[in-house]
Design a protein around this nucleic acid. Sequence first.
RNA 1: GGGCGGUUAGCUCAGUUGGUAGAGCACUCGCCUUACAAGCGAGAGGUCGCCGGUUCAAGCCCGGCACCGCCCACCA
Length: 853
Amino acid sequence: MSELETKTRYDAAEAEPRILRRWLDSGLFHPDPEGTADENYSIAIPPPNVTGALHMGHALNGSIQDTLSRYQRSRGRRVKWILGTDHAGIATQKQVEKQVQAEGTTRKELGREAFVERVWQWREQYGNTIVGQLQRLGASADYDDERFTLDERYAQAVLKVFVDLYNKGLIYRDNRLVNWDPGSQSAISDLEVEEREVVDTLYYVDYKLADSNETITVATVRPETMLADTAIAVNPSDERYAHLIGKTAILPLVGRRLPIIADDYVKPEFGTGALKITPGHDPNDFEIGRRHGLDELTVIGEDGRLTADAGELFAGLSVKAAQEAVIAALREAGALSRTEEYPHVVPFSHRSGARIEPLISLQWFMRMDELAKPAIDAVKDGRVRIHPERWTKVYFDWMEKIHPWCVSRQLWWGHQIPVWYRGEETYVGMTAPEGDGWERDPDVLDTWFSSALWPFATLGWPEQTPELKAFYPTNVLSTARDILFLWVARMIMMGLEFAGDIPFQDVYIHSVIQAPDGRRMSKSLGTGIDPVGEIEQHGADGVRFGLLAMSSSQDVRYSAEKVQQGQQLTNKLWNASRLVLTRIDDDARAAARPRTVEDRWILSRLARTQKMVAECIETFDFSHAVLGLYDFIYGDLCDWYLELVKPRLYEADGGEKDDLAATLLYVLTETLQTAHPVIPFVTEEIWSHVPGSEGLLAARVAGAPGEVDEAAEQSVTAAIAAVQALRGWRDSVGAPAGARIPARIEAAGYDETATHVARLARVELVGAGDGAAGEPVAQVTIPGGVVNVFASDAVDLGAAERKLAERRKTLQAEISRSEGKLSNQGFVAKAPDEVVEAERAKLVALQAELASL
RNA sequence: GGGCGGUUAGCUCAGUUGGUAGAGCACUCGCCUUACAAGCGAGAGGUCGCCGGUUCAAGCCCGGCACCGCCCACCA
């Protein structure tokens, strides 16, 4: 009890680690795999990169998932929050490469085995900082059953999926144009490419015809790729070039003979209407080339330099240098007719930031259209629901025109593709084939290939484990929208295909938290705010509250004030609890035993709040849930109820005291329970001081909310309004704060609250027959009537009169507005009767008040 | 090029089925009232981006425009 008596401020930094320890030691977060997924509740965390540190997005998503998890635990459900990290192929490999380079060596010098070993070491050393940071946030994930996407069991699942898909004909190897990322020296998928606007130069290059003096001019932004040209294309309906179709042009600098072909793809109005075709280095040209059976030449290598096939003049040059050299040569040859600036969007690697180099390359692809169909149906028929709903359309749009997925990556860190080659032979299987001379495919799988299995591979699939039975499908997947296609859509496809069911019922797409100035939060821009620093400063509860309060169905800016608000709430709750707990007996026990109207009122307000919070959490409306909690705790509980019961709390005895203590404890306990999913630390801490409390609040199952009491609410709401009106009047007439002013309530509905109103407004109630009071000097309007205020030294009569005049003016304005409305025949005739009636009643009340002043 | 979101108080954001605008912070005034001065009480502050329409009534519904942001997209 002494801590409660002396600590006037809640000390989150002191309390939180202590409470976290108790939670972790309790085993509460590690449920036994019993029961079925229908009975239980589970969430699979979006696995953060092992290399990563907690950023604001993780902190928000962690707060959301933890609020859901703790809420469901309080409903008595067995809850498993599946935890783990992702090996994050490119990102991790890049980190370690950087480290290795700093030591003066390179990945290639080390060799594959040694390098991969280095990555594992690196992961051991730095890998799990984020898990500790999630704990700091209070995340009630299952730390005793952590997964990594390169775990042995997980890897087996990945290989099995690959082999099965291969056997079904959905995975195949093909020589196709891919997005080559010169930065990471690997192919990447379409989804890892971002378009950026750049200003290039459009070069007009003249190609001579083989058998005439004519020339045909093409426009290109990438003259260096002309070295791999294999045709020129024009639109078949373009009269300017009709006579050239079927003829042959000569490629400048190289001398190659190029057929002039007709293809509808060419836009006559763009450039010159003639297009050079480079199937080896342009996606559109690639398609045209395949249509016309053109050769596919390659002059740019995987290292981003020109190959020997580019000719000795250019071989070995970087793309940029080659462009300059080609332009110089064209200029010298007189083949460059003009140039112009040309702004357009071109692809860049989302991973390395390098400009994408389209290359023809032998890669593994996965056909998606067949898998997409059932995944579309799952959302269409509501088995999977996406919130906010507008994202379902985005999901459908992408899924309905889905393209093959390039799944191989030229990296070392990841799941090595389970394919072996020997001469012309190919073997696909989970283990190496029998016999000598087999060589395994050196490539690894796209990280997202393994992530796509996350909800079931974490639970032991393909074994039919008790975990799988108890927790698959999961209930909710909470994530930011940027990985809707990259991850969420693919999980739905893979879940349906391999685990035989949807991977989750609800997808919640949360806000992206931007920097306070509206820019993206990013380390490189210097706009990031470290959630761990915020936790240290304001407590995990404050940060959780703040993030949830900020979040909505759209992007929001980081609001330090909301975090501050959360921190203040924890302090308020702490102090309110001190007031209650230091003044009731140790043998008091929580029970709703209302004796007064304010008791019935707070129980009603509490019940309302409990229902509201539950509904908001279940519909993913977190900001309203937490702000509603704030209003209840700050407003109803602290500002009013505790102030209303203070006299009883100090002075009552016997049964009255016992009932009050029981009711206060009930209200406090239920408040703690309701707020716990949002602010778990402070509520757990206070719970430990509640007399008779057993075990952890985090493990406590909530009872059903009580009933709403409309009559009590009406009565106390009026009392509150009366107090506020009287306080406002006092202030306006300059009454000293301590002065008690004689007054008489002339209004119905205050039988039970009159003494409260008088005390909180600091007025002295005088009886109706008390002639000594004389004539009232002022009237203060309150719900249902007025309060007559009598002369007192504390009242500045001039100020009182000014106040009255002001009120008259307001009333007159309102009356004329109301009269105008009611004399409008349209309103009276067409508005619903109840609206018209309410307006009439209001007018009568206004007129009565004006007449009384 | 297509699509989606946004534009409400100085700042960050709420505004449920259309019925005379709310919160937090900041600001002003008054209070060390025995839970909390990182507190308590009171107050000031808004032509709801612009134009038009529907309606008795529009922040909310419809059409158009402007600006900001995001996603998708194979015009050299």
